[in-house]
Amino acid sequence: MECAGKGSGTRCLGPARKRCGRCGAVSYCSASHQISHWKVHREECERLEQQMRNLDLLNDFPFTFSQESTVQISEKQESRCSFLRKRGIHQVGLWVCECRCGASVTSFGNSRLESDTWNLSNILCPCRGPSSPIAKALCSWKDYYEWRCIPLQSPVSLLLHWPLTVYHSIQLAGLGSLTSEISKLCIHYLGPEKELLQLAVFGELRALFPGVFVQIELIGPAVPHHRS
Rank of each mutant, 00 (worst) to 15 (best):
M1C: 12
E2G: 12
G5S: 12
G5F: 09
K6V: 11
G9S: 11
T10K: 14
R11Q: 15
L13F: 06
G14H: 05
P15T: 14
P15F: 09
P15H: 09
P15R: 15
R17N: 12
C20W: 03
R22H: 11
A31Y: 10
S32H: 08
H33A: 07
S36V: 09
R42E: 12
E43P: 00
E44Q: 07
E46G: 11
L48R: 09
M52Y: 02
L55W: 04
D56I: 02
L58I: 14
D60L: 13
F61D: 09
F63H: 02
S66T: 08
T70K: 07
Q72A: 06
Q77K: 10
C81P: 01
R87H: 06
I89A: 01
V92R: 04
V92C: 10
E98S: 10
R100L: 13
R100C: 12
S104Y: 12
T106H: 14
T106R: 15
S107P: 00
F108P: 02
G109V: 11
S111G: 06
S111I: 07
R112H: 14
E114M: 05
W118M: 01
W118G: 00
W118C: 01
L120V: 04
S121Y: 05
S121G: 13
S121T: 12
L124F: 12
P126N: 05
G129D: 15
S132D: 11
S140F: 03
S140L: 00
W141M: 01
W141Q: 01
I150P: 00
P151N: 00
Q153T: 05
L159T: 01
H161R: 11
P163F: 01
S169V: 00
Q171N: 03
A173K: 13
L175T: 01
L175H: 06
G176D: 03
G176F: 05
I182D: 00
S183I: 07
H188L: 12
Y189P: 04
Q198W: 05
G203Q: 12
E204M: 08
L205G: 04
R206E: 12
R206W: 02
A207F: 13
L208T: 03
L208C: 05
F209V: 08
P210V: 05
P210E: 08
F213K: 15
V214G: 06
V214T: 07
I216W: 08
I216A: 07
L218G: 03
I219S: 04
P221N: 06
P221R: 09
P224T: 11
H225R: 14
H226E: 13
S228T: 09
